[in-house]
Amino acid sequence: MNIFVCVKQVPDTETKIQIKDDKSGIKTDSIKWVVNPYDEFAIEEALKLKTSLGAEKVYAVTLGPQKRVQDSLRIALAMGADEGVVIDSEEAMDTRTTAKALAEAINKTGNPGLVLTGKTAIDDNSAAMVQQLAGTLSFPHCTNVTKIEAADSTFKVEREIEGGAKESFEITGPCVLGATKGLNNPRYPSLPGIMKAKKKPVTVHTLADLGVSPSDSGMRFTDYKLPAEKPATKMLEGDVDAQVDQLVDLLKNEAKVL
């Protein structure tokens, strides 16, 4: 049995976003790329569960232009994943087509007992991959997971729902689980880990190898725009009493939000 972790490379949260002149996307030349923060929880959990599940290997899987995404894959390998799988593609695809490519790559590698990934990616925040990947693999899923206890192929998981409540489930694997903050504290890659990662095997697939075509997509993102400028901030002058009086008046009579 193998564990698979799907890792997405995303722009660092501090990166300035600029739009291409034809509005078809963002300019990618000066972006700093990082591993999607939620996927780091997934990688950590895969490494922790490898022993308790008696898994043979932990595979890190990623999709994107190989030249670029291999950096993120190396981080997963340096943290401790055994092997890498890259689906080399420059194409923009919708989430269901991406899910299909990942599912094919996982099945080709073989014997998935558990698939982990972040509950969402912070770039497009689609929060779709856990469910769509599970649907494509015909596995059960659970997302927003903050706790996993695994024995054989039974997964006792806890997930966070609205209002701060926790919901618990017992899932019969193989399954896809979506990691969120609180699940664990991801380790930093160690220096020996980084050295070892350089020698770990990485398999590269094209979309065609996996029988997936970007034209299967039913949706695309167009007409990118920067947000409209906010009107100038009204700074309230005077002593505290005057500021408080003005604020309450403005909220009541100008903004009308009370």
Binding site: P11, T13, T15, K16, I17, I19, I26, I122, D123, D124, N125, S217, G218, M219, R220, F221, T222, D223, Y224, K225, L226, P227
Partner: peptide, 19 residues
């Protein structure tokens, strides 16, 4: 339309089939 990159920009979502 949906915001992307934590609201740093937004895009239109174009449907390309009848699904």
């Amino acid at each position: 339309r949906k915001p992307l990159y934590a609201g740093k920009c937004s895009c239109a979502v174009e449907f390309m089939n009848e699904n």
